[in-house]
Design a binder for these strands. Structure first.
Lengths: 240, 240
DNA sequence: CGCCTGTTTGAGGGACGTCAAGTCCCGTGG
DNA sequence: CCACGGGACTTGACGTCCCTCAAACAGGCG
């Protein structure tokens, strides 16, 4: 999952249709904390997320980390390049994954239909990543966090049934490394949004969106974060 | 082109082999300043760069811009998503491009070999973009500019014949919007590299790499930019 | 209950952005 | 040929957003 301009988000990757019939596909359940693969491993299969959340990361030698994406239901992870994975992939919450063996994609026994769908998935991936460039390169901390919450709400709404609640299965430092910030800045920004009445933080992994429009506005850089007065609570002269 | 960790760079996309034989492919020359397509245009063809340099950009409503990538010889641009381009594409220096009509890729008359090669190209693109995430999210201005120069040197070395010279056909603000900086910061950083003796700036579009190893070190965050003394000019107590 | 890890909050500093004033380059025209 | 003008680039002064460092706090687990 990449943070995009929420309204422009393309539909989730549909289930790879034809592949379901293949003997090469298996559905498996992975526990939280499991590793699916490491950067550099030879690619033998791709995974489509059916439930749960994955995390894709890259490391620099000096320890700096970038979370490349989160894998939500519908997403495909494990795209190979030159036969190797180029991120680490870990399971954040117990996940049901459909595995596609690479042999089903290559060589003479390759399934052309599956091949075509994989290309579509890769092209969607490229588009989503381009959106994410804009965010990493050009957005402020508030815009980044607001965008993140907006997209999380959309992506997980099917699970929770509610568009007003975001479930954050990942740690603050995962969020930070995804958005190109520090944990402290992520934490501070969330507090700021809470104090201004735009969100409420139920518990560390659950954020309630009190003012979706304001949040969306912030994600686009269209409004400044400000006093609670902006949300109708005039007269409250609390610290902004 | 994405700025990657230079040493890990994957080989350029090889020419789409089978496609050359197709009647659907044409080589065309485009002048600097030409536009190839806009974001949102219907995709009718992809382009492989044979010579020259392209620029792929995205815009936010408020005018903020992100240069998504530069298209150098070997690169393929115009990957569709849901049938549309999702960047603008402009020609920076006169370019010879091979156009692949999308009809050659889709439907019943689709060429399966070409299809397969396109998937490989898309997967390479994804890998390169993931590298670029790391840079946008986690690197300092010096690291970004140094990385950019390193990759430029590699990508263009076949043209210039020299690995010690980088040709920068794009403007400073293109570089800034690619790296997630401002023109001023790009300019200052280049000056800083020049003053420390790591590069020389022949003219606005030509940078000579005097100390490739130092530059590479900076791109990796392994060394601090410092006095010229570091490069052997001990005793020079000039401003660092 | 105490430890441990993750999170929040605070104070302070630094890197980069903003704003503004040069400087350079190049094309145009006298 | 030089003067002029305009746009891109460079440089400087200053501000600010976010990072760094540090301490307090909170929740989970023995």
């Amino acid at each position: 999952m990449y943070v995009t301009i929420p309204s422009e988000q393309t539909p989730f990757a549909p289930q790879l249709r034809c592949a379901r019939k293949q003997a090469t596909t298996v559905t498996k359940v992975f526990k939280a904390g499991n590793n699916l693969y490491f950067e550099g491993d030879k690619v033998d299969r791709l995974y489509q997320v059916q439930s749960g959340v994955l995390r894709l990361t890259r490391l620099l030698e000096d320890g700096r980390r970038q979370v490349i994406a989160f894998g939500f239901p519908g997403d495909i992870v494990g795209f190979p390049c030159d036969g190797r994975y180029h991120t680490d992939c870990d399971v954040l919450t117990e996940a049901r994954l459909q595995a596609y063996h690479l042999s089903a994609l290559e060589g003479e026994n390759g399934n052309p239909e599956l091949h075509k769908e994989l290309l579509q998935a890769a092209l969607r991936e490229i588009s989503a990543m381009q959106d994410h460039f804009m965010m990493l390169g050009r957005k402020s901390a508030v815009e980044k966090v607001a965008s993140f919450l907006c997209v999380l709400t959309e992506r997980m709404s099917s699970d929770t049934g509610s568009r007003n609640q975001a479930f954050l299965p990942m740690s603050r430092s995962d969020i930070a490394d995804f958005l190109g910030l520090t944990t402290e800045t992520v934490s501070r920004t969330l507090s700021q949004l809470r104090k201004s009445g735009i969100i409420a933080i139920n518990n560390i992994h659950t954020v309630v969106i009190l003012q979706p429009n304001a949040l969306f506005g912030l994600s686009q850089g269209r409004e400044d974060i400000d006093c609670p007065s902006k949300s109708g609570l005039h007269g409250l002269a609390r610290a902004c």
